[in-house]
Amino acid sequence: MVPVSHYLLLSVVLFSLGVAGFLIRRNVITVFMSIELMLNAVNLAFVAFSRHLGNLDGQLFVFFVIVVAAAEAAVGLAIIIALYRTRESLSVDDLDSMKL
């Protein structure tokens, strides 16, 4: 049986990679995918603690996180499409204001 701390360490590493991607990437879609990576790292921590504490609530939280991530992806990608129509660019340097 793998100790729960190894799951948590993996979760922290994935979260840090998500933060790094969010900061260094210039393409807005890749930045968005880095956010998904962070959400998944947190999900892994939820599941690991759920197993560690013998409580199913953690897994339910993961369901809610997945639902919110789906809603976020739908709205966020729609915003990206709307911005691309007016700016003709996907670089975050050009997308510095939300006003169309």
Partner: peptide
Amino acid sequence: IVKQLPRGSESSAAPL
């Protein structure tokens, strides 16, 4: 993590 969950602090909870 290493401090709070040292080796051997494996979960005693039954599989869910």
